[in-house]
Design a protein around this nucleic acid. Structure first.
Length: 419
RNA sequence: GCCGGUGUGGCAGAGCGGUAUAAUGCCUUCGCCUGCAAAGCGAAUGUUUGGGGGUUCGACUCCCUCCGCCGGCGCCA
């Protein structure tokens, strides 16, 4: 399989460090609020990647962190007057529920930041030992000047920034915190340097080192994480043990935009997953998201989702008679997936497979994409259809057409055979 | 300011050095089919790949430059 890596800015063949095995890490959510469709896009993409890699026979260890200690959680908990752990667990549960509702179930293990404090402290300690970090009154900081490869992922090398956080006794504004001193209520731990809590970047390297080791295959996340977050991860991990590269394949998903703007919580232009699922089912949402390439920006519109819903409906309507294997269609699907997870092209192949009646492929590939391409009528719908068939046989079209209209209005596509 | 992404038919969205009959879909129109529809099948309309240079026998595809849009710059999927 070929994948585009942000590190090399090119598409390269996937060669894993251990034959037959892939270590995949994707940045998880900060659990202080509900997930929106922008998050859904990223997690659907990596869900499909993991499922496809497994389908090809690779063993995939898909690890995701859960950021459950962070300023936003601390502040939100204070606002709501609830303990941090209650807030974090509530939204963690909501996140996991939303993901399941979207058919996202490929993650092997979720790692919470708060249950990996010893690993985080161990990394901070080693970085201090290497001279790559220093202690101030505010906390333990990573010294960016000690890492000469800084900026290789983002192209930002640290001399040209217009705004930067200074103060806190940092040697340079670029330095970032590994361990922040203070009392943060419930989520405060002892450390050799003083009580406090972890910085944002270190939990990811702490969990990946624990479960994967110091180097692994693929790291994924949204485009907005390249700088500073992923840059900081590289700096920490590579400084710690000197191994390079920490990760060979860096995959970043493009933004979901609303009226040209990035969907984000701060702009308030988001659609939560739970709200989206009230109107559309997971098959439609996944089809819609996979209809564009994961690195392209995707404009979220009602019309766009409705378009996806119709197209999916047509596939299901076409996929009735089983005509056996469509070798060409199957090859087209696989070729598309091999080519940097080109799901729009893969869906074009699915259209062909449906038109050519390869039910087996639709079922098999549908599992990779997490989309049910085969129509399954529920019992009530089946009963209605039977009643309509009887009415039509008796030529009582007025009633049967009324039922059909109502069903269509309810979003159920009705097709009648000839009398 | 610096760094990065993106710009293809009415719309969504692939292709990225070898004729855009521009994949695939959505929309529109017509025909077949249908009790009538829908779906399906067949057909039609449509733009020429943001602008300008360059490299090349040949560029949507590579390079330069400009323009538009979006994002990052220690909060963010």
């Amino acid at each position: 399989m070929d994948l585009y890596s942000t590190l090399s800015r090119t598409v390269e063949p996937l060669v894993t460090r251990n034959p037959g095995r892939v270590y995949l890490f994707v940045c998880g959510p900060t659990v202080y609020d509900y997930s929106h469709l922008g998050h859904a896009r990223t997690y659907i993409v990596f869900d499909v990647l993991a499922k496809y890699l497994r389908w090809t026979g690779l063993e995939v260890f898909y690890l995701q962190n859960i950021t459950d200690v962070d300023d936003k959680i601390i502040n939100r908990a204070k606002e709501e007057g609830v303990p941090q752990s209650v807030l974090a667990r509530t939204f963690e549960a909501a996140y996991l529920r939303d993901m399941r509702s979207l058919g996202i179930d490929a993650v092997s293990y979720h790692a919470r930041a708060t249950t990996h404090i010893p690993e985080i402290l161990s990394q901070a300690e080693r970085l201090l030992g290497r001279g790559a970090a220093y202690v101030t009154e505010a906390g333990v900081y990573f010294d960016v000047s000690t890492f000469e490869r800084n900026g290789e992922l983002s192209g930002q090398h640290g001399t040209d920034r217009i705004s930067r956080v200074t103060g806190e006794g940092k040697r340079t504004p670029l330095d970032f915190v590994l361990w922040k001193f203070g009392e943060f209520g419930e989520y405060t731990w002892d450390s050799p340097w003083g009580r406090g809590r972890p910085g944002w970047h270190i939990e990811d390297t702490a969990v990946t080192e624990k479960y994967f080791g110091q180097q692994y295959d693929i790291h994924g996340g949204g485009l907005d994480l390249i700088f500073p977050h992923h840059e900081a991860e590289i700096a920490q991990m590579e400084s710690m043990e000197g191994k390079h590269p920490m990760v060979r394949y860096w995959m970043h998903t493009g933004f979901l935009t609303v009226e040209g703007k990035k969907m984000s919580k701060s702009l308030g232009n988001f659609i939560t997953v739970r709200d989206a699922l009230k109107t559309w089912n997971k098959d439609v949402l996944r089809y819609y998201i996979l209809l564009s390439h994961y690195r392209s920006p995707l404009q979220a519109t009602e019309e766009g989702i409705a378009h996806a819903a119709r197209a999916l409906e047509h596939i299901r309507a076409a996929a009735k008679k089983d005509a056996g294997e469509d070798r060409e269609g199957r090859k087209a699907f696989i070729d598309a997936m091999e080519s940097d997870l080109n799901t729009p092209m893969a869906l074009a192949a699915v259209q062909k497979l449906a038109a050519n009646g390869d039910i087996g492929a639709l079922k098999e590939f549908g599992e990779i994409l997490g989309i049910n391409f085969l129509r399954e009528a529920s019992v009530p719908i089946r009963v209605l259809q039977e009643i309509r068939a009887e009415l039509r046989a008796k030529k009582q079209f007025e009633v049967s057409d009324m039922i059909r209209e109502r069903m269509t209005a309810a979003g159920i596509t009705v097709t009648d055979p000839s009398l």
